[in-house]
Design a protein around this nucleic acid. Sequence first.
DNA 1: ATAATAGTGTCTTTCAGACAGTATAGT
DNA 2: ACTATACTGTCTGAAAGACACTATTAT
Lengths: 305, 305
Amino acid sequence: MDEVANMKVNKAGVTEEEFLREYDGDKYKKPSLTVDMALFTITNEEEKNRRRLPEKELQILMIKRGEHPYIDQWALPGGFVDIEESIEEAARRELKEETNIENIYMEQLYTWGEVDRDPRTRVISVSYLALVDSSKLNVVAGDDAADAKWFFVKANEYKEVKTSTEKGIIIEKYINLELENGEDYCSAVVKETKTLNGAVIISNYEIVENNCIAFDHSKIILYSLMRLRNKVEYTNIAFNLMGEYFSLSELQQVYEIILGKELLPAAFRRKVADMVIETKEIRKEAAHRPSKLYNFNPEWIKNVY
Amino acid sequence: MDEVANMKVNKAGVTEEEFLREYDGDKYKKPSLTVDMALFTITNEEEKNRRRLPEKELQILMIKRGEHPYIDQWALPGGFVDIEESIEEAARRELKEETNIENIYMEQLYTWGEVDRDPRTRVISVSYLALVDSSKLNVVAGDDAADAKWFFVKANEYKEVKTSTEKGIIIEKYINLELENGEDYCSAVVKETKTLNGAVIISNYEIVENNCIAFDHSKIILYSLMRLRNKVEYTNIAFNLMGEYFSLSELQQVYEIILGKELLPAAFRRKVADMVIETKEIRKEAAHRPSKLYNFNPEWIKNVY
DNA sequence: ATAATAGTGTCTTTCAGACAGTATAGT
DNA sequence: ACTATACTGTCTGAAAGACACTATTAT
């Protein structure tokens, strides 16, 4: 702020300097602030048949709560934001503490502010979507939470109800979320209600059923999956799930898993042609034609707000 | 939470009920939480020539600060979130208090959490993008702030610097923001830095120059403009700026203003054909062929996460 | 040879861009 | 008749969808 601004006084005749000195930041009750991260990766399934390709699967990192509330249930990694760090710094710090993962792709997702979303006290959560290449994951298992585990994620819509109103339409979608990892199984049903009134859309998410997923994290997971699915179509976001070298078939599999549908090889290759750079590397690991390996093309940027 | 969960004890042998009773939410220092709204509308310029169409312009609502800090500068409408209301409720309440506007389109934009973004104390701001149809605006001027004014908005990129690094590329864009309303003129220059490292993009916004726009609100305004520009291409968001009845030419003008470029009528009409419903109404207000009026088609929904 | 995947050629369909041309009100 | 906008027809070209076809490895 410049000199002139500093000399201005308010209606009470107080300068800015005086005002700030007297300012009581704790006059009103404040909510607590946390970050939560939906961290995804894609891993290869074991495959004995040397002819077949390993199946890929989408996984999300969850942490078993060792304290009330929701003790023994599974929550997204995250925690409270310290007073002297930015929100994003907090997110990266928590991830590092809980899982020892650093320097990965992360984007802010949504800020959850329902009054009763945490039974302890009023807690606002800024959620992040994060992606890692699974080859970087030998590092996992931080000290804070030994109970960090990767879960296979499945989400599917199983019911849709459309109701017409005078000025619009109400669409209710029931989405089933399943998290599973051999030992543990969690699930939730979230109802997404879109109310259209004129051109005004209001979206609302409600947890209808919940089995061992802490807080409102089932909502956050579903929201992050939708964002991921959406962004994969017109950004380079999926490349954050790949290693430095990858084949186009692998890349296609990643797209297919995120989008939940099969793609045609020819069209897919045309689509990603400008996003990759061919290398001289070749992968021959199985009993079929080997594949050329590619790198991401850093010139290709399409970022969306 | 179910009965079983209530009976579980933590490592210290404490049940959830006891834990919550003893929980001290004020153990750590907490940031304050505010909401800020970038509210846009599109208005017609006066036009005396009965032959010509009125020009449309994009406007944003700003409020003159009557208190430190940034006294007498212009800020986005908003304010502190009360402890017993959700963030979105707070946003709608503040808008109602400051401008008497209700029931409009609003979507969460981004949560700003830099440590020093407010000189008073640590303040987190959840920003919203909101749109109103200007015909609803005869209601304006609430009691809280008589100093609410609509500003014409212009943003343009005037410099781009690309630097190649070993593993990627750095792109710096300088964007000039201008707010103007006959009496008042504010401006800012924001530098957007995209750092690409492998496939990991990190975006950063920095205010390089600032003239009478309070806090970091110039960043928020630019971010909301980018979101608006982006979403207008593949959602129905622009319809929130239209009245109930509108001509396709008017709609096209709105798209053109938001996108900052001219569109071809034939292609535009094809594109929006499914999004509108023809009515029997006709507008003949000027000395040229009258236009058919349309309504928004509520069946057309495309929402993006 | 065979199984399985990698990768290409090309026809079709869809959709955006371009632009000329027609339609219709008040002046 | 003229001006300014409203609206349509149709050519073109780019990109996505579909699918058959070729290529290459270990078994």
